[in-house]
Design a protein around this nucleic acid. Sequence first.
DNA 1: TAGGACATGTAATCAGTTACATGATTAA
DNA 2: TTAATCATGTAACTGATTACATGTCCTA
Lengths: 198, 198
Amino acid sequence: MPNSPLPPTAWAVLGLLSFPGERTGYELKKWADASLRFFYGAPAFSQIYAELRRLEGLGYVTSRRSGPEEPRAKRAYAITEAGRDALAAWAAGGEDVGAVSLRHPVVLRVWLGHLAAPERLRALVEEHLAHAEGELKEVRDALARADGVEAWAHPQIALRWSERHLVSEVELTQGMLADLDALAHGTVNAAPDAPTAE
Amino acid sequence: MPNSPLPPTAWAVLGLLSFPGERTGYELKKWADASLRFFYGAPAFSQIYAELRRLEGLGYVTSRRSGPEEPRAKRAYAITEAGRDALAAWAAGGEDVGAVSLRHPVVLRVWLGHLAAPERLRALVEEHLAHAEGELKEVRDALARADGVEAWAHPQIALRWSERHLVSEVELTQGMLADLDALAHGTVNAAPDAPTAE
DNA sequence: TAGGACATGTAATCAGTTACATGATTAA
DNA sequence: TTAATCATGTAACTGATTACATGTCCTA
């Protein structure tokens, strides 16, 4: 009945609409960029629009074209009761909620560190550190805004998780930097052309 | 010109071959499952075989069919000098190393928590906690094995990062559980109508 | 003798991205 | 008047997964 197996991103988009009010695809994208993105990435515009059309086909959302009273031509979406039910069923997660997926290109390069110049590698990791600090600042902004605009409890918990996660990301990166430094001066031989010595 | 833009996964597979010795696709998959997967996921068998064929087409790896001396018919791959050079160039990362991508289905469901029964949500999070603890155990096993088999310094740093990351994942999950509980029995520190105080 | 690990692939499908295209409205 | 933002889409591509298919070798 209700469930053809939609991808998580479709549920995420529907989830964005599960909070009161109607929104355009454009608004959904902005909101995803500011909040969803910290724990689930942010789909591209094109995908959001595609998912909205699919969700409408399933009867999970309805859309309304803006009339001439509004300055700008747009299409605003709202969740239906069927959509809310389906989303709730999905969120309750029969059995398998799916695995966490992580792709960390910086750690990947460190893993391949035997091929790189130590200073270059270090620079890469330091860039990432700065980036993570920037992200942390952004999630804190989002959290601050969430007091007013996003005063719903559960999204706040998710954002709090994201904040702690980024704090940890910063620490983890610093730890990796320390490991790299320890490797560089002294402890071990990091010979780039080491023979197949056991 | 060495670089048609290969996907990170191709470089990861090539990276698996950048450590001494030759390996079959099957072995690569096992190794990815035991180590790469903690910070970059593990590609499916079919993708590994596909990437190996592509890398061979580019001259980054060579392959050798097992002769009749070996019990089992298989194809073993080894990295070439060109492959090593290309990989080193990629690892040095001109400009953009790509963004960390994270998809956390559990946090996604917590974010949607207003739709679920609190006990169900809690159960979901607790399942994840147990899972993360299991993963932590596995990464520690990998780390222990790395002393012998995987005695290369940089993969060890990556595994150390993974260990700390999973420790943090466990803590983060516990924190989220605490937030959920606080929300459930009124102890909410997140005031419903906190003013937009400066 | 059966089940599991080893070993390699094909086929179909799809999620998701990038690039492109268009145009209105608003603020500088 | 120019740039940014709002707003919505199409087209092409490809990364990656799942399911399937096949067969060998090892061990309990």
